[in-house]
Amino acid sequence: MLVEAELIQRAKQGDDQAYNQIVQAYRRRILGTISRLIGRPEDVEDVGQEVFVRLYYSLDQLREPEIFEPWLYRLTVNAAYDYLRKQRRRPEARMSDLSEQQVMLADADAGTLAQREDIRKSKIRDFVQSLLGSVSEEDRVLLTLKEAEGLSLKQLEDVYHVNENALKVRLFRARQRVLKAFAKSEGAGESPGA
């Protein structure tokens, strides 16, 4: 854990200073997770703030400070779900939606090595986001937590409150669905490595 159990206990009792310290400690990690879950950098801060507001109002329901991290992950996942559900109604053009010519023009503008590297990363991000966008929000979030965040099965068990076997089945199915979309995009030559 990034903070002591005693600090969480103090925040639970209404100590705003303790709460501020918790936010400072977890801010970077949570924003990174949100960034990978929702895939829209412009909205990461907004969703992050929502997570910490929910944390403030639900801290008194936390029974043991030891399970604080899975608790915070759960709040993060729920806030990401809410965001993704809202976004489903507002489609926006992304790099992966641009025509090949537009992407080539963007490439040509980026002359330096660093800029090219940025573009490569951006393409990977957009490709994975579009891949994950082809499956349900549940699959997307679960796979991101497992594959991109690197959470263990034990940690996922704590976040989802389900047993390991059920989780393995869900993960396997989610992975199969994404792999199917991956095979399709590879066939169409859309993969960044293609």
């Binding site: 936010v23 990461v44 703030q49 507001v53 403030y56 990363k121 991000r125 594959e147 991109a148 991956f182």
Partner: peptide, 29 residues
């Protein structure tokens, strides 16, 4: 394909930038 997918997810992890949040993050909360 599974290997390529695993590699892609690893690349994705590296491609996602660290997000620090603006100076207004905490006051916003």
């Amino acid at each position: 394909r599974e290997e390529r997918f695993n590699r892609l997810m690893g690349d994705y992890r590296d491609a996602c930038p660290e997000v620090e949040g603006s100076a207004d993050f905490m006051p916003g909360v």
